[in-house]
Simulated assay, not measured.
Amino acid sequence: MCAFVMVAEDDTKQAELVRRYLRREDHSVLVVCDGRAAVDEVRSRRPDLLILDVMMPRMDGLDVIRTLRRDYDLPVLMVTARSTAEDKLAGFDLGVDDYLTKPYDPRELMARVRSLLRRARSSDGPVVLPLRVGPLALDQIRHEVRLLERRIECTPAEFRILEALMSSPGRVFSRSQLLEQAHGRDSFVTERTVDAHVKNLRRKIETDPRTPVYLQTVYGIGYKMAGHG
């Protein structure tokens, strides 16, 4: 599963270590050392995966994600020395797909890279019709979500959660089921990340995220997609 991976890391020794491990698995690798360069190179080179440090010069990792998610849905693995739950949820809320705290074992990094690449490529398969719930439509082939024909930008994890919910309107999905849908069985993240993904989706598709019409909470269990005829 060869891919083009971009590494945004201002620690040159750490960046070189990550590059060596990626090259061992035959990935093409581009290393940049500041946030602005990361944004510019994603726009011009379109990598398959971005490994992104939080603390970088010119533009930090969270601002990089905030900028890129306006136009791109590439998988993003964030690495950082910040280890609190609030820091991690802030990253997931912006659209990060996975999160690794420094110092980390490079073998764990590569396991997460493989997981993200598998999830990104698992959409290859037979042609299926778009899913529709009222004016909300999800096209699995084009990887697009539209509400009243307005395109809604979603991260890969958000898209997969919405796909699961829209495939069975009215069915209640537990957080663990949605976590597996979003990040796979070999996920290294917690069920709380599902809440962050759903919160982000509500901001994008609900008129009033505080009183959701589509993505409804089933307290003590998880979430469901309300049917709209």
Rank of each mutant, 00 (worst) to 15 (best):
R118F: 11
E86M: 07
E41C: 12
G220S: 05
V113G: 03
R58H: 12
N200K: 10
V7A: 06
R160M: 07
L117K: 06
S122C: 10
E149D: 15
P103R: 07
A157N: 02
V54T: 07
D139S: 09
Q140S: 14
S83C: 04
M59L: 13
D195G: 11
D10K: 05
D63Y: 01
E206L: 10
R185G: 15
G35D: 00
T12G: 09
T193Q: 02
E163D: 12
S187I: 09
E180I: 14
P135N: 10
R175C: 11
G134V: 11
I65F: 02
H143R: 15
V64T: 04
T12M: 13
K224R: 14
Y99N: 01
R112M: 03
D63R: 11
V133Y: 02
L201D: 02
R151P: 02
M78D: 01
R107L: 12
K224D: 00
R119V: 10
P75T: 06
T211D: 14
D139Q: 06
Q216N: 07
Y72L: 08
R66I: 08
L165C: 04
M6Y: 05
I152N: 03
G227K: 12
F92K: 01
G134K: 01
L147M: 08
V18N: 06
R142A: 15
G229T: 08
R202A: 06
L62V: 07
C2P: 15
P47V: 03
G220D: 02
V29E: 05
V18A: 04
S122A: 14
H228Q: 10
G222A: 03
D71A: 14
G170T: 10
G220R: 03
T217R: 14
